[in-house]
Amino acid sequence: MNADRRRGPWLIITGAVAALVLGIATTMLLAGTDAFHHAAPAAWRAQGARCNAPALPGQVVDVTVSDMGPGMMGGTPGGYGIRMMRLVARPATVSAGVVSLRVVNTGARVHEVVVLPLPSGQGSGERPTGPGGKVNEAGSLGEASRTCGSGEGHGITRGAMGWTTLTLRPGRYELVCNLPGHYLAGMYTELDVSR
């Protein structure tokens, strides 16, 4: 009976370690199969595009998109396991009117920023995803997804910037990277617009 009491805590610790190893192995497998990857056009990869945004109108929100890179582990806990990717906006609150998003990609993968109204009662990161780990973009107000340019494109490559200018009414908005699997990997944040 005494041996069974000593074995109890070790069984719990062994189970926890096994769960951790399984989680890490699953994330590595997904990263290895390019589940979180979106390829940039070959011309952009060859350039290693680096650029700066021009002077932008209205209030400027600096958005940083990043990832852990291929094959790297770590991050902070998120709603879907280990957050391998991040999207951060500063400031997180602006006044209604003309707002420009200046997006810099500090990660290794291609990213984008789509602006979606955030429904009442819903928090950032709570949108349902469909096939490919993407959210529904219906109602999008615009996006920054062009390397070294404004508006829509094929994504912002590593080390580059993209930007967009919108007129926003008071409310809550969610900034998301909607490339396959990126939202589930933690690429979302809330932008609040006050009167």
Rank of each mutant, 00 (worst) to 15 (best):
L20I: 09
L20E: 06
V21P: 06
L22V: 13
L22D: 03
G23R: 04
G23F: 08
G23P: 02
I24D: 01
A25R: 07
A25Q: 08
A25G: 14
A25N: 07
A25V: 09
T27V: 11
T27N: 09
M28T: 08
M28K: 09
L29E: 08
L29I: 12
L29Q: 13
L29W: 04
A31G: 14
A31D: 12
G32C: 01
T33D: 10
D34N: 09
D34W: 09
A35K: 14
F36I: 11
H37S: 14
H37D: 15
H37N: 10
H38D: 09
A39N: 15
A39P: 13
A40I: 06
A40M: 06
A43T: 11
W44C: 02
W44L: 13
R45D: 15
R45W: 05
R45E: 14
R45N: 14
R45C: 05
R45G: 13
R45V: 11
R45K: 12
A46F: 11
A46Q: 15
A46K: 14
Q47V: 10
G48L: 04
G48A: 03
A49C: 08
A49Y: 02
R50D: 09
C51H: 00
N52G: 13
N52Q: 15
P54V: 07
A55R: 02
A55F: 00
L56F: 10
L56C: 05
P57C: 07
P57N: 08
G58H: 06
G58M: 01
G58I: 04
Q59G: 03
V60F: 06
V61G: 04
V61S: 06
V61D: 04
V61M: 03
D62M: 07
D62V: 02
D62S: 07
D62P: 06
V63S: 01
T64R: 09
T64H: 05
V65S: 00
V65P: 01
V65T: 02
V65Q: 02
V65F: 04
V65W: 01
S66G: 14
D67T: 00
D67P: 01
M68D: 10
M68L: 15
M68W: 08
G69Q: 03
P70S: 11
G71E: 00
G71N: 01
M72I: 01
M72H: 14
M73L: 14
G74P: 04
G74R: 01
G75R: 00
G75S: 02
G75A: 00
P77C: 04
Y80R: 15
Y80M: 10
Y80A: 12
G81R: 00
G81C: 03
I82F: 15
I82A: 15
I82Y: 13
I82E: 11
R83S: 12
R83P: 03
R83A: 14
M84H: 08
M84F: 06
M85L: 11
M85D: 08
M85I: 05
R86W: 08
L87Q: 05
L87T: 03
V88L: 10
A89W: 03
A89L: 02
R90L: 10
R90Q: 14
R90W: 02
P91D: 05
P91K: 07
A92E: 02
A92H: 09
T93Y: 10
T93P: 03
T93L: 09
T93V: 13
T93R: 13
V94H: 00
V94K: 11
V94C: 06
V94D: 05
S95A: 15
S95I: 04
A96P: 08
A96I: 11
G97P: 07
G97L: 07
V98T: 15
V98R: 10
V98K: 11
V99I: 10
V99L: 11
